[in-house]
Design a binder for these strands. Sequence first.
DNA 1: ATAAAACTTGCAACAATAGTGCAAATTCTA
DNA 2: TAGAATTTGCACTATTGTTGCAAGTTTTAT
Lengths: 137, 137
Amino acid sequence: MEQQFNILKKNGLSITEGRKKILELFLDAEGALAHADIEKHTDAAFDRVTVYRTLQTFVEKGIIHQIPTTDNAILYALCKDRCEEGHHHDEHVHFICDNCNKTICLDDVTVPDVKLPKGFQPLQSAMVVKGICDDCR
Amino acid sequence: MEQQFNILKKNGLSITEGRKKILELFLDAEGALAHADIEKHTDAAFDRVTVYRTLQTFVEKGIIHQIPTTDNAILYALCKDRCEEGHHHDEHVHFICDNCNKTICLDDVTVPDVKLPKGFQPLQSAMVVKGICDDCR
DNA sequence: ATAAAACTTGCAACAATAGTGCAAATTCTA
DNA sequence: TAGAATTTGCACTATTGTTGCAAGTTTTAT
Ligand SMILES: [Mn+2]
Ligand SMILES: [Mn+2]
Ligand SMILES: [Zn+2]
Ligand SMILES: [Zn+2]
């Protein structure tokens, strides 16, 4: 039985073609995907709106997480940690390659704690490192 | 002589109403500004396109820097470090308040180095912390 | 296996955000 | 103050994201 099926089942989601396909893309992807990537890779088999809604649902369920960027294109990647509905634990560093433009989850590199000024209460941290990835040098 | 004038002059930019006004907004702002904030605060005195181009120019010159977010709204804030044309040094942590929604440059909190897996060459790091700011608790 | 209930999808319409070419206006230089 | 250089606004286009709703699909309970 495919992994996609299990993930959807476990999260109480109906099994649909769109969800299976998009999940498959993430499972096969080397790096993170933007909405536009998904549309490309599915050959527009699914409506744009369906893709938006699927991504939204997956984020809510803790199946994928978002990666902040500086270029008006949210990136999404599979959660490999113990993320749950409404509660993510993706405190790993993300690496964006300036050359091949891939975004990679460094699952083993934890976002370090920083000492904040008095009065600031941290709840979630994200760290994005840009540079040259291991494939590109 | 106003600060705006000096900054523009130093960067070899023509002194125009729009640039002075937008720079003034950044100088007065408590936190970071998005494109939409600037339009609001200028009462649409300048064309939307002019605002885009001004922000772009300021980023290129190292006058402001971008802050990555997860909601398709790039934030911009004044560079307080020694940023130069094409070469930024804004290696400070950014704090986004979940309550008042302000984004604050923590200029004194440096983004910590992390040990990356073999082969990854870091060039620039960004760190965004979400939580409750000092004003809001 | 089947029907009803629950949920998901696609469509159409809309809204917000962003980029480009070009003529007119402004700023700079001399 | 004129001419050169730069910047601006406008019109148009493109991309990205949202919503309501009817039709289609999946699930659940018989
Ligand atoms: Mn990740
Ligand atoms: Mn900053
Ligand atoms: Zn690379
Ligand atoms: Zn706050």
